[in-house]
Design a protein around this nucleic acid. Structure first.
Lengths: 221, 221
DNA sequence: CTCGATTTTTGAACGCATTCAACTTTCTCT
DNA sequence: AGAGAAAGTTGAATGCGTTCAAAAATCGAG
């Protein structure tokens, strides 16, 4: 498997040259020519390995998702309550992406689910689903009782909640992104509070309607 | 004021040539050269009147917001209950933008609030605030009692809710966007239900936390 | 070892949004 | 009416992402 290795090595060289440039000069002003140059290959080579400039960011994100997995495991293992678990998952992610925070902005622009690089696209399904699994587990192993009809949709809701937080974080210009951290602090409590509340009889009709709504939204999207 | 008029006329000619092309061939594949050509001016002229290709779409949106205002007035006038009012506002907007639905996708990509064309930018503040006013009025004149602490934030929440729906609608590939219409149908009821519910004593602590949270988010953003 | 097939690499196009310096028209003030 | 300023117009040039045809390197089978 020497070919595979060598090819892989080139790919990685391009990828890290790109990330380094993105970090140093920003996504927009880094050019593909420079990226290729930095990796010691011709411009076209970058396109042999990556479909587009954006796709390089996605590759970075995929790699990150892999590296994150064990860290997320630890986060779940180290926290007991549902609130602590969700908080831990979020903290790990934000901390991990901190050095490349702005870079994620290059991905967040793709709101069209048909676009390959959208967080909702078929191409990114695997990352997305693996990520949701962690929320699923955070819910499962916690002592909070989830009504059965909610169990199917709640991981997805939490994942969307997370995406919203990350989006806010990417463009948070406050010092050290303290607004995002305040937002996380406050919102996790509310979210968990609502989850607990969702079992109350008074809210049952609302809950039912929310569930069918979410099924409408997710259905065959 | 002949200059003003003539200049305005050229601007409008470029704008309508652009919209017509966008509708016929899609935003991406319509080129600035063609737009200018269609309006009978040189390429550079388009840039004299508009900062960018995207900015043309924003100009269209601004124009639309003006045209929409009386229609929204009528919508409010014709509906009594809060639910009917919100529903009416949404229906008017979706119906109005129907012919150019896909075009709005060109705006939705700008998630960075610092970008001039973002729905959250300083440049679009006026449109945004005028739009929120309608939700404010839908709330004011309705018989639903809103607790005072919510009054400041609720119009904004409803506006965000609307933006979410529109985003979903833009990329809704179901026939006649029936999924979006189902989503509107179901969600308006839930949203109004939650608003009504928000007055219940049981939910008071959650409500308070939500309000302070939203103040954190909006604060000086 | 050799020769065709496959993978990888190259750098020069290509198409497009955007910029710009020069040119022309229109306005303004006396 | 005329001169200087401002507004409007031009189309070629720039820079960038991306494509592509052709060259080079590598591989796999006989």
């Amino acid at each position: 498997m020497k070919t595979k290795t060598k090819s892989e090595e080139t790919r990685e060289r391009i990828l890290s040259a790109a990330i380094e440039l993105f970090r140093r000069r920003g996504f927009e002003s880094a050019t593909m020519r420079e990226i290729a140059g930095g990796a010691g290959v011709a411009t076209g080579a970058a396109y042999y390995y990556f479909d587009s400039k954006d796709a390089i960011v996605l590759a970075f994100y995929e790699h990150a998702a892999c590296e994150l997995e064990p860290l997320l495991e630890d986060a779940l293992a180290g926290a007991k309550s549902l609130e602590a678990r969700i908080r831990a998952l979020l903290e790990v992610k934000l901390k991990y992406f901190e050095p490349n925070r702005a870079l994620l902005g290059a991905l967040s622009g793709h709101t069209d689910p048909a676009h390959p690089l959208s967080p909702f696209s078929a191409q990114t399904r695997e990352i997305r689903e693996r990520d949701m699994k962690f929320f699923e587990r955070a819910l499962e192993d916690s002592r909070v009782r989830i009504s059965p009809d909610l169990q199917g949709v709640l991981p997805r809701i939490l994942w969307m909640y997370q995406m919203g937080l990350i989006l806010f974080w990417i463009y948070d210009r406050s010092a050290s992104q303290k607004r995002t951290h305040a937002l996380v602090d406050q919102s996790v409590g509310i979210v968990v509070g609502l989850i607990k509340l969702s079992g109350f009889p008074l809210l049952r009709p609302v809950r039912r309607r929310v569930v069918t709504l979410l099924e409408t939204v997710s259905g065959e999207a």
